[in-house]
Design a protein around this nucleic acid. Sequence first.
DNA 1: GATGAATGAGACTTCATTCAT
DNA 2: CATGAATGAAGTCTCATTCAT
Lengths: 194, 194, 194, 194
Amino acid sequence: MTAQDTKEKVMAAAIKVFGQKGFHGATTREIAREAGVAEGTIFRHFKSKKDLLVSLATPMVVDSLIGLIDEVSNRSDEEIIKAVINNRIKIIREHMGIVKLLIYESVFHPEVQEILYSNIISKAKGVLEKFISQRIQQGRFKDVDPSHAARCLAGMVFMMILWENVGLDESKGLTKDEKITQLVDIFLHGMTKS
Amino acid sequence: MTAQDTKEKVMAAAIKVFGQKGFHGATTREIAREAGVAEGTIFRHFKSKKDLLVSLATPMVVDSLIGLIDEVSNRSDEEIIKAVINNRIKIIREHMGIVKLLIYESVFHPEVQEILYSNIISKAKGVLEKFISQRIQQGRFKDVDPSHAARCLAGMVFMMILWENVGLDESKGLTKDEKITQLVDIFLHGMTKS
Amino acid sequence: MTAQDTKEKVMAAAIKVFGQKGFHGATTREIAREAGVAEGTIFRHFKSKKDLLVSLATPMVVDSLIGLIDEVSNRSDEEIIKAVINNRIKIIREHMGIVKLLIYESVFHPEVQEILYSNIISKAKGVLEKFISQRIQQGRFKDVDPSHAARCLAGMVFMMILWENVGLDESKGLTKDEKITQLVDIFLHGMTKS
Amino acid sequence: MTAQDTKEKVMAAAIKVFGQKGFHGATTREIAREAGVAEGTIFRHFKSKKDLLVSLATPMVVDSLIGLIDEVSNRSDEEIIKAVINNRIKIIREHMGIVKLLIYESVFHPEVQEILYSNIISKAKGVLEKFISQRIQQGRFKDVDPSHAARCLAGMVFMMILWENVGLDESKGLTKDEKITQLVDIFLHGMTKS
DNA sequence: GATGAATGAGACTTCATTCAT
DNA sequence: CATGAATGAAGTCTCATTCAT
């Protein structure tokens, strides 16, 4: 077992326990137990509990977010946006624990917010923004603020996931796919009947 | 100074301190100091720190949410939705401390989530849903799931506010009003140029 | 409602609550509630919680303990001792709450011990001692230390009651009367078969 | 210094401080100071203050109580009973602090009562009961309830110790040995002169 | 005299962090 | 490097007692 292995075991355990209990709710004891190491070992690899939290925001989710648009750029708007959304949803679902955690803690820990924003959100938003800007320049989208529009779309998606995750989602009729289809349709063509 | 006054002072202080530090980050000592009472006094009025948190979710925001739709029902869709959104934003901005608090704490405290949902969200969503359902029946909106559509709109608004509040909002050009206008336009007519 | 009434209500409540929870386990709040008065009222009548405890040891049980021997002095030893025991048991049962309380608190509160001893026990023991001394002088009892003998008898009775009260008394066969009969028989004639 | 050593130091300190002040009267701070450890250390070894109390009832007194009768079984009744009593007295005197404590707390903590009864009292009483039963079967003791008789003897002894311990024992004349002799004599042959 | 809200010292307990092994 | 016992500051909460009404 190398030192790096130990470090990764601790980080994996931290994601799990932080994700379930939040930063303050989690104890180093529980993280250590989950990782199968002694409590002291954590502090060999991370200066403090907070340092451990911050370290989680850096490399993890980021890498799978990029290099998506190009592969699909010759399809229809609807297909592209759906692909982006599906990719995002997949990532968020896979990493729900840490995503919830980072969002939550970012409110109270500015450094987490900073990392969250610059590493994850700005990149994700950039992908959408670039796409929207293109379409506006091509005259195919209305002349709205691309950043604002990207956030509108992100907001719809995010709330959809939030709602599912809350366990209070009573919209019985729609499958996940139908929800995404309707959502994209609203974004592209609005609610008003032509 | 009546007992009720004291209780309210404590609640006001709790909103402030919880809002700044989060539930775990806040200490009863600081809340007491902020309220100008002894620490023990808090526990005359609230069984525990958590009870204090939960009590904040109950009466506060809820009451100003209702009785809005009827007054404006003979205006255009755009005006109605804008009115709803503006009303909601005003309320959220006024109570930003507690709203942030409740949303964030609801992630780790199921009872807060429950209260938040049943007291605040479900009512707010109901207003929108009813309106959307009407329009669908009148054949003026597409036949989407009203609950889902309402959540899409709410998501856009919510993320807009979130973004403003995070202090990372770099969208230079748009005033708040313009943002709402664009947002409602996207919701009603979509991104695609006719 | 006179001041004296209030004081007595508080004392009665204190006997009950102290008896159930012990001195430290009882709270003035609960005593006040049990007495149907405000918490502050207790301190109008008693300097402190401990003062309330001590006040309970003084007048209550004492008075019914005396004036017994003379009335029965021309009966048999067995009858006399049984009469004394039954009288004592009756009193203890009637006042079980406070008796338990005083005995137990006397372990950690010397002043309660002092009061318990001088007001209650010494008088009760005196009755037995005087009787035993008489019998020794008459040559009908062995020449043992009367005080010691009295304590032996008291110990037997006391443990019998204690045992009953603990709820772990598994001696199925014997009625209370038979137990007393056997006990007195042991005291008077011993275990050894003639 | 092993973990076990620390645990034992804490238990020893707890016996001392609980014994002096009672469960509620003792503070974990004082126990820690007495044990020479930090307050937090107590809670590494015991879940709570009450857990510490309960742990004291388990192993301590019990082990020295057994294996006594057999060694002396070919002596006279008087010698046997005296041996039992002396053994018991020795143990109780050695552990007076904890014995007082457990008796006291057992009144208010049912789990302590349970432990006290099943671990200590039932075993001690069993020794006596078995002996008395034997004698009854052999026709050497009267046909009384052995359990009841054992409690009578125990009551005499217990009150004798209690009295000594109270510091109010004014029986000047008798040595401890004489007291035991008289006590056993009363139990075996009663008060009545043959 | 009675009330009960307020007090604040101090109780028990948790937990991130250190350090000798 | 890893361990885990020990630490002690800091947290929540209790409760006897006071005092303005």
